[in-house]
C-alpha cells in the first residue's frame, strides 16, 4: 500500500451566510511542488487557504493532507504553517517572544534556523513588532514560519509589501526549503510575476471554483500569442484548425492567443501564407488576463 502524499481536495464547498465562497472545488497539489494560487478578487483564494489550514470547517467535501483530514488534526497541523495576509502578533511583542510561543507550539521549531534567518534578513529580534514596517513584519513572519520547519506552508499575499530584494530572498528561501525538506508552499498572490518566478504549478480560482490547475511549464508551452499580417485582413473564422482564445484585428495585422503546441500553431498559421508571422510566449499575467477574459472578467468591459 502506497502512502498518500500531497493535498487532495474533493468537492469542497464553503458558504458565508448567503455568499458562496467556494463551490465544489476539487484539485490535487503534489508534495514538493510550489503551488501558486491565482484568481480574481473575491475568487475564494484566502478561504481556500484557511480551509487548508484547518481554520474553517468545510460545509461539504473534504481536504486530505498526506491522506489525513486537516480540521482539528493536531498532529497533522504540526507540519502546517499558515501565514495570513494580515498576520497577528501579540501586543507589544517582539520576534523572540513570538519565537518562544512557536517553540512551545511547534515541536520542530528550530532556534538555529530562527537566528540564522533573522541575521540574514538583518532584523532586530528584540525590537517590538509594532515598530516594524509592514514589509519587515512580513519578513518576520516568514522567518518564524520557516523556523517551524513545516512540510506545508500556506502563504496568503505574502509577497505584497516586500521590496524587490527581499522578494528575491524569500523566493530563494522557499526554493531552498523545497529542495532541503520537501516543503510544499502554496502561495496565493496577485503578483503573478513573482509566482511565475517561483511556482511550478498554478491553480486558477474564479467565483469559488477551480478553473484549472496545471504545471506552469505546461501552461506556458500550451498557449501562445501569434502576431501575423496578411495582404488582406482575415476574420477569426479564417483561422481554421486553431484553438483561438482571443482574436484582435488591427488593420491587416491579426493578434491571436491560441492554445496548442508552438510547432503545430506555427505550421497552421504559416500554411495561410502570411506576409509576416511571429509566435510569442505568454507571461503568466497575460495567461491570467486571457483566461479571465474568456470567463467574462474582461478589463475592457470593466472600464468601458
Amino acid at each position: 500500500m502506497t502512502e498518500k502524499t500531497g493535498i487532495t481536495v474533493t468537492g469542497l464547498s464553503k458558504q458565508f451566510d448567503k455568499i458562496q465562497a467556494l463551490h465544489q472545488v476539487s484539485t490535487t497539489i503534489q508534495k514538493g511542488s510550489i503551488f501558486g494560487l491565482i484568481g480574481s478578487n473575491g475568487a475564494g483564494k484566502s478561504t481556500f487557504l484557511r480551509l487548508l489550514a484547518g481554520i474553517y470547517r468545510p460545509d461539504e467535501g473534504q481536504i486530505l493532507i498526506d491522506g489525513q483530514p486537516v480540521y482539528e488534526n493536531e498532529v497533522l497541523k504540526q507540519r502546517i504553517f499558515y501565514i495570513s495576509d494580515d498576520q497577528f502578533y501579540f501586543p507589544n511583542s517582539n520576534m523572540e517572544e513570538l519565537a518562544a510561543y512557536f517553540a512551545v507550539i511547534y515541536q520542530k521549531f528550530s532556534y538555529e534556523k530562527f537566528y540564522e534567518l533573522t541575521e540574514l534578513f538583518r532584523l532586530d529580534s528584540k525590537r517590538k513588532l509594532n515598530t516594524f514596517s509592514k514589509g519587515m513584519q512580513k519578513q518576520a513572519h516568514i522567518i518564524l514560519a520557516l523556523s517551524c520547519r513545516p512540510d506545508y506552508l500556506f502563504c496568503d499575499e505574502t509577497f505584497d509589501g516586500l521590496d524587490p530584494v527581499m522578494r528575491q530572498a524569500v523566493k530563494r528561501l522557499l526554493a531552498g526549503a523545497v529542495v532541503e525538506q520537501q516543503m510544499t508552499p502554496i502561495i496565493a498572490s496577485h503578483n503573478l510575476r513573482e509566482l511565475e518566478d517561483i511556482c511550478d504549478h498554478i491553480g486558477l480560482l474564479h467565483q469559488g471554483g477551480v478553473i484549472f490547475e496545471r504545471e506552469l511549464d505546461h501552461l506556458q508551452s500550451n498557449i501562445h500569442k501569434v502576431q501575423c499580417a496578411f495582404a488582406a485582413p482575415k476574420s477569426r473564422e479564417a483561422f481554421t484548425g486553431l484553438d483561438i482564445v482571443t482574436c484582435e484585428q488591427r488593420g491587416s495585422l491579426s493578434v491571436l492567443v491560441v492554445r496548442g503546441s508552438a510547432e503545430e500553431t506555427e505550421a497552421r498559421v504559416k500554411a495561410m501564407e502570411p506576409l509576416y508571422c511571429e509566435l510569442l510566449p505568454l507571461t503568466l499575467e497575460e495567461i491570467f488576463i486571457t483566461e479571465m477574459e474568456v470567463l467574462g472578467y474582461d478589463i475592457q468591459q470593466l472600464i468601458y
Partner: peptide, 18 residues
C-alpha cells in the same frame, strides 16, 4: 472576537478543546 487572532490561533497545531 478578532478575526486576525481567530485565524492565528485556529491555524496552530492545537485543538479547540485544548
Amino acid at each position: 472576537q478578532q478575526k486576525k487572532q481567530v485565524n492565528f490561533y485556529h491555524s496552530q497545531p492545537i485543538t479547540r478543546t485544548r
